[in-house]
Design a protein around this nucleic acid. Structure first.
Length: 327
DNA sequence: CACTTGACCTGTCCGC
DNA sequence: TGCGGACAGGTCAAGT
């Protein structure tokens, strides 16, 4: 679920919340969520200050003063939620242990959204009390300013299905992550052009356009939601082979992708089931979606009933009337 | 090499 | 109401 607009939304939120915070303590309960959480954590994570939050493709990168970085992939059900306490605490609360009751030990953080964020805050939240049983990693944070103990806060990495991961690596090696080595260009980058889009797509000439859009080595950041939405916007049938799509149509698709992603970022991303932003709130893009999760409903453009089918192994939403197989 | 399918997980929903 | 199975979808490994 978290695709480019969702990760971008989280990045924008965390950029306002994390820089200047110092990491006091790290807790994790699922090895695969944080595979290198051992000696490096003590040396390069605990005590380090967060300097910057950025994004590449669907990966969030948190840079630290130790010249190490946390690279975080949320995969399908990952969440990164920041929770501040009401006021500074005199003593550091304990991180929950594996065999202890997390909720009891973290009562100060386990506040309903309304209390955490104040009255009038959009309470359109999927997050109840944290940690919950999907919590895999907790970062205890502290504001760095002089010697006074300032307000403390926590960053929760929740991941129901445990597909997501966090890696602690030297900042200089972030771009050498296997994931980044072959990943395609950022679609919202100003130097990403129609010609490059077409050329990269044509490496997947014999596959269908939906599979090609989901291929992160072609283009970074597109997932199932925005593939379907972009193809609807460009009136392209998702099972069409790339080689059978005209350059004109591909140019239309290029523009559609940019428009769809840009609109979704404006709306705070898409919440289908799990996605929330850095403050635990849902995104509203799906209210503006034209086909995704709208099977059985009329196409907003022509009124035909939207179908759900299977393309590239994924649930795929299509208007059979205005998305044509032949271009 | 190009392309497709299965595995990784848990929670939810549907049919019997 | 319980239970098995399909489904959800990002990426990598394994298979064709």
């Amino acid at each position: 679920m978290p695709e480019l607009p969702e990760v971008e939304t989280i990045k924008l939120g965390l950029s306002q919340l994390l820089p200047g915070k110092k990491i006091l303590k790290v807790w994790h309960d699922w090895e695969k969520s944080f595979p290198n959480a051992d000696a490096d954590v003590d040396r390069f994570l605990v005590g380090a200050e967060i300097t910057r939050v950025r994004r590449r493709a669907k990966v969030l990168i948190i840079d630290l003063s130790s010249k190490y970085s946390l690279a975080i992939h949320l995969k399908m059900t990952g969440q990164l939620v920041y929770v501040g306490t009401q006021e500074s605490l005199v003593t550091s609360p304990q991180s929950p242990g594996k065999t202890d009751d997390k909720r009891q030990q973290t009562a100060d953080y386990a506040l309903p959204a309304e209390e955490r964020f104040g009255a009038g805050h959009p309470s359109d939240s999927l997050i109840g009390q944290l940690p919950d049983k999907s919590t895999r990693v907790i970062f205890d944070l502290q504001t760095v300013k002089g010697r006074t103990l300032h307000a403390q806060s926590r960053l929760f990495f929740n991941d129901q299905r445990k597909f997501g991961w966090i890696r602690l690596i030297p900042t200089s090696e972030v771009e050498n992550l296997d994931f980044f080595k072959h990943v395609g260009p950022e679609p919202l980058s100003s130097n990403f052009t129609q010609a490059e889009f077409r050329n990269r797509l044509k490496r997947r000439a014999n596959t269908n356009i939906k599979a090609a859009l989901l291929d992160q080595t072609v283009l970074a950041g597109i997932g199932n939601i925005y593939a379907d939405e972009s193809l609807w916007n460009a009136r392209i049938y998702p099972a069409t082979l790339v080689k059978n799509i005209s350059d004109n149509k591909l140019n239309t698709l290029f523009t559609a992708i940019i428009n769809v992603l840009t609109l979704s970022i404006e709306k705070g991303g898409s919440t289908d089931r799990n996605y929330v932003n850095a403050e635990g709130q849902k995104g509203s893009y799906l209210s503006f979606a034209n086909v995704f999760r709208r099977n059985g409903l009329p196409c907003p453009r022509c009124g035909e009933v939207i179908l759900k089918m299977r393309v590239a192994g994924r649930g795929t939403h299509v208007c059979p009337k205005c998305q044509k197989l032949t271009q």
